[in-house]
């Protein structure tokens, strides 16, 4: 294997940094650094000569060992690629298993708490929606009943023209009583909404409703069942009879849509407060 034409100048080669690590010759070849290193050109030649196929024992041994190495590399690589955990030691596997278990437990706990939150939010949402719907319905009903909201619906319009003598408050009251008995829900006289506390008062100028003097013709806008209200007003000796007896004229017209636009501002209560609602009920 030795080169015949090794130039002596190759002694300039730095050797100090070369660790004595060549396993092929370690220990056995003490003279490793004693001979001059082959020049670059001859090194390539050495390599080429070694690489040229010859049926020698050296070639066979090297080929065999190289084949072994290639085989081992491929087997190891494929086993690492297929099952990345197989190369690990027992304690590493145990650690990985522990980590995985702990992580899984944490995630399961998180998932559980999130699910609880979701349930809470969903049920709370449903409750709130139901409460809101109920509250809105109540607000609408109570707003109409208390005269706080304008209303629209089928009903009748009553037009009363006073005769020579002004009508007395009792006549108006009789009409209102009759309307209420007949199930009228919303009543407006001229521009005044009639509520629970409304009152007809006889004054020098005429009848005043809640402080507003009514001037003829007095128009009643009533929302309710016209089929019930009209007969109720016209019963003999009833409200309309009283009107006519007093020398005035009244006409009742059923209408599909009566608009009650006047509203009554309820004053804030001074004494009464609502009974606290039990949240459980």
């Amino acid at each position: 294997m030795a080169d015949d034409d090794v130039p002596a100048v190759a002694d300039e080669e730095p050797r100090g940094e070369e660790p004595r690590g060549a396993s092929g010759g370690e220990g056995t070849h003490v003279a490793e650094h004693a001979r001059p290193t082959a020049s670059g050109r001859s090194a390539w030649r050495t390599l080429a000569r070694a690489a040229s196929p010859r049926a020698t024992r050296t070639q066979a041994v090297v080929a065999l060992l190289c084949g072994l190495l290639g085989f081992a590399i491929v087997v190891q690589v494929s086993s690492t690629r297929e099952k990345p955990l197989t190369g690990l030691r027992q304690n590493e596997l145990v650690r990985i298993l522990d980590d995985t278990t702990r992580r899984g437990n944490e995630l399961a706990r998180q998932a559980e708490s999130l699910r609880e939150q979701l349930d809470e939010l969903e049920s709370g949402n449903a409750d709130q929606k139901a409460l809101l719907t109920v509250a809105r319905e109540r607000a609408a009903v109570q707003g109409i009943l208390s005269g706080r909201l304008p209303a629209v619906g089928p009903g009748v319009t009553i037009r009363i023209s006073e005769g020579t003598e002004p009508l007395r408050a009792t006549v108006y009251r009789a009409i209102l009583e009759e309307l209420r008995n007949a199930g009228a829900e919303v009543v407006q006289v001229d521009d005044v909404r009639i509520v629970a506390s409304s009152s007809f008062v006889d004054t020098a100028q005429g009848v005043a409703l809640d402080g507003t003097v009514l001037t003829a013709p007095v128009v009643w806008e009533v929302i309710g069942s016209a089929e019930t209200i009209m007969p109720a007003l016209e019963i003999p000796g009833g409200a309309m009879a009283q009107v006519r007896n007093a020398g005035a004229t009244g006409e009742v017209v059923a209408r599909d849509e009566v608009k009650v636009t006047a509203i009554h501002e309820a004053p804030a209560t001074r004494w009464a407060v609502p009974v606290p609602v039990d949240p459980a009920s």
Binding site: M1, D3, G24, G25, H29, E32, R35
Partner: peptide, 21 residues
């Protein structure tokens, strides 16, 4: 490692198949 050692020994001109094996 052995393979590289062998290659180095070859270039050093001290390669021996028995040693390599």
């Amino acid at each position: 490692d052995a393979l590289f050692g062998g290659l180095r020994a070859l270039l050093d001109g001290i390669f021996d198949d028995k040693v390599f094996l």
